[in-house]
Design a protein around this nucleic acid. Structure first.
Lengths: 142, 142
DNA sequence: GGGTATTAGTTGAAAATGTAACTATCAACG
DNA sequence: CGTTGATAGTTACATTTTCAACTAATACCC
């Protein structure tokens, strides 16, 4: 069979299966899209970021980031202030409300992932991590 | 950092990066969506399949499969005949034209993937494969 | 058989995404 | 300065995906 051994297929399938539980959390329970969730995470970790910086980190195309920022701003989870030196640029940062939301969602996400991986032995987890690192090095992600 | 070590994120990112080149082939060069491409592959490997069987194999929701089948049928790449014993069911199979198309696209896909993985040593490929197998076993895919 | 529930597959509307064009601002160079 | 080109970010439109409702056919069960 062609597909079964085909790397992009294998990765896409595993990504989908792995994301199923976690997606349900941010989508259904907290009404966030994936770009919104990722923007939230990145802002929680970085204090203040511009849309361009978020594009690099999320990573995603600028339209996704733009819409995610607009939506999170509408929720009152972040504010933006334009840069004094370059008025094209806006710095986004989480409000207290946004930080609280992240602190509510994050443990649910970690718990769902941990539940998924629970059947794996430490040795298997190690093997999985090593395998992914091979690709991450290839893409310069690590 | 939370995201960087977070499995669903890592997998999704790697899946996207890995799929970039190959997507360009079936999308831009051959004007196929991903569901269409996957349906094509599965039919090429299985002679004849119903929509439900394709849903399991692709894998994808039935609306995606239904639309992919309609589109490939419109191209003249497959035909469907309704089952004699159960007239709800239709068996799809590739036409000669469809088989030729697959035989044109497939080597391009393999070549693109091989080009991507070219920098990896055999030992690294082995490590990657072992890592993915851990998850595939977890999901009962292997 | 006749009613009810399932199943196969399609369709329509809403949400999300991708692509390209657009606005506003800044930089560079005469 | 003033024109030209680049950059940050948004908006508009087309395509894709998702979700729910739908049609048609079969299975169940009395």
């Amino acid at each position: 069979m062609f597909l079964k051994g085909y790397l992009p297929y294998r990765l896409n399938l595993l990504a989908e299966l792995t994301s199923e539980n976690t997606q349900a959390i941010y989508r259904r329970r907290h009404d966030l899209t994936r770009p919104e969730w990722r923007v939230l995470v990145n802002l929680a970790e970085a204090e203040s970021l511009t849309a361009s910086e978020l594009c690099d980190r999320v990573p995603a195309h600028k339209t996704k980031v733009s819409r995610a920022l607009a939506s999170l701003e509408a929720k009152g989870w972040l504010t933006r202030r334009t840069d004094a030196a370059d008025r094209r640029v806006a710095h986004a940062s989480l409000t207290l409300k946004g930080k609280r939301a992240f602190n509510r969602i994050r443990p649910e996400m970690e718990q769902a992932t941990e539940a998924l991986l629970a059947p794996l032995t430490p040795e298997e987890r190690q093997r999985l991590d090593e395998g992914l690192k091979v690709l991450e090095r290839l893409f310069g992600q690590a």
